[in-house]
Amino acid sequence: MQPAATPRLSRTIVIALGWLGLIFLLAPLAVVFPVSLTPERYLSMPTDSISFQHYAKLISDTRWSSSILTSLWIAVLTTIAATTIGTLCAIGLWRLSGRLTQYLRILLLAPLIVPPIVHALAFYRTWTDFNWLDTISGVVIAHTVLCIPLVLITVSTSLSGFDRRVEQAARSLGASTFTVLRRIVVPNIAPGILAGAAFSFVTSWDEVVTVIFLTSRKVMTMPIVIWNSLSERVDPAVAAISAVMILLTLIAVFLRLSKDRKPQGH
C-alpha cells in the first residue's frame, strides 16, 4: 500500500462513519415530518393527500393547547428558580472554596447521579406529606431540584475561569457585596448562567418521569399528553408537536450560530 493512501483511506472511513451516525440520529425526523401531515386519524404515512389538521389541533384542541401552556409555565418558573438558586449557590461555593464545600458540591450534584425513577419516587413520597401533589408549584419545586445541579455545573465552569482578584479589586474600590455581584461577577459569568438556564428550560419542558408521579388530573403537561396520546390511540398530533419542537430547536440553533458569526465580520 502506498504510504499516502493510508491516511486518505482512514479519513474516508471516519467521515463515512460520521455520516452513518448522523443519519442514524436524524432518521426519526424523516419519519416524523411526513407522519404529521397524514390526513388519517391514526399514525400513518400520507399516501394520496396531505393535511395540516393535526397542527391545527394543537391549537384548537384544549387538551393540547392548555398542556403546552402549562408546560411552558412550569418550564419558565423552573428556569427562573433553578437559575437564581443555582447561580447563587455556585458563587457561594466559589467564594468559600474549602474542603467542606467540595462535599457540599457533590451532595448538590446528587440529583444528577440518582436514577430519575428513584427521585421521582422520593418526590412522590414527600410531596404527599406536603400536600403538593397535582399542583403546578409542586412540579416546579421538583423540577427546580432537578435543574439546580445543571446550573451549578455551568456557572461553576464559568467561575473557574474568573480571576478572584477581579472581585477583590471591585470590593477594594468601594463596591458593596451586592454591587460586586450585580455589576462584576454576574456579567462575567453570564454565558454560564445562560447555558444553565437553557438546560433547565429544556429539562423541565420535556421531563416526564417525575411529572407522572406527581400529577393526576389537574396538572397536564405536554409530555404527559404526548404519553397519553401514544398509549391510548397513537394520535398523529404527537408527530405534529414533535415537528414543531424540532423546527423551533433548529431556528434557535441557527439564530445562535448567526449571532456568533457576526462579530467576525468586523
Partner: peptide
C-alpha cells in the same frame, strides 16, 4: 471590610474588569 477602607489597590495581574471599557473601569469607584 475592604470596601469601607477607601484604599486604592493595584493587584498583581491588574484585575481589570474584563467586560468594561477603560473608561468604565476608571469610573467604577
Amino acid at each position: 471590610p475592604p470596601e469601607k477602607r477607601d484604599l486604592g489597590v493595584v493587584f498583581q495581574g491588574y484585575a481589570l474588569f474584563p467586560h468594561m471599557t477603560v473608561e468604565e473601569n476608571v469610573a467604577f469607584p
